[in-house]
Design a protein around this nucleic acid. Structure first.
Lengths: 125, 125
DNA sequence: GTGGCTGCAAAATGTTTGCACGGAT
DNA sequence: ATCCGTGCAAACATTTTGCAGCCAC
């Protein structure tokens, strides 16, 4: 169950892996559609979910705008530029261990976003 | 400019302040609509934005589902239960100072979400 | 062959916007 | 008398879903 290796699934995986910079579903779809114009956007969404569930890629649920996808699958954090919308990998402080253990709440994941202005946008000011 | 004190704006502010537990726009709208059935949802949204901009309340942009609103206006973090969707105030570790300063990126805000299972949901298991 | 996978379109979700009217200052 | 704020409905952005046919196993 759930392990069929279709052209579309391979395309989605290869495309995410070929794109650095945390693309969203729309960007991934457009890149694939250049070569394979009749792929459906729903299929791209479904395969992104599937690949994220099986751990082949990582889904980054953004609080602003569309979700992003990441070829890195290890837990790491991001810096979000509110001007250009780009995501940068953040230096991975040992956030998990530094937090006071919240009583009763079992922490499974930590979602950290540093919001500010990236070097590029500061220079363009 | 932008300082007109309408009934609707007062209602939105009072309602958020009367609701603990980080309600979303829909819940705030429904609570107001019980007493004032012809208020528009767009008006609720516009006033929530306005009140958040002027600092009267705080908007919490969630990566999953609708934005929440908080009567607390100081910077603090939250714990999100992926089962019941409730938000809990998180103990405020000094996250900001503990992070290695990211080179070039100017941090204006930190968005931290602890994702897991709350005490209630663990007990109901 | 069969059941997961696909394409298409429509629905769903959450929020924003255009427009003409109404009301606070 | 302004012109900001409102109600309504429609638009919008992103994602999900229903369904009939397709194709990898």
């Amino acid at each position: 169950m759930n392990t069929r290796n279709t052209i579309q699934r391979q395309l989605v995986l290869e495309t995410v892996r070929s794109m650095y910079g945390h693309p969203d579903a729309e960007q991934i779809y457009r890149k694939i559609a250049k070569e394979h114009p009749h792929i459906s956007k729903a299929t791209v969404y479904r395969n992104l979910h599937h690949l994220a569930e099986t751990g082949a890629i990582q889904r980054l649920e953004m609080s602003e705008g569309a979700d992003r996808y990441d070829l890195r699958t290890d837990a790491h954090h991001h810096m979000y530029c509110r001007i250009c919308g780009r995501l940068y990998d953040a230096p991975d402080g040992a956030v998990r261990t530094l937090l006071a253990p919240p009583q009763g709440f079992s922490v499974e994941a930590i979602r950290l976003e540093l919001v500010g202005v990236c070097a590029d946008c500061q220079n363009k000011k």
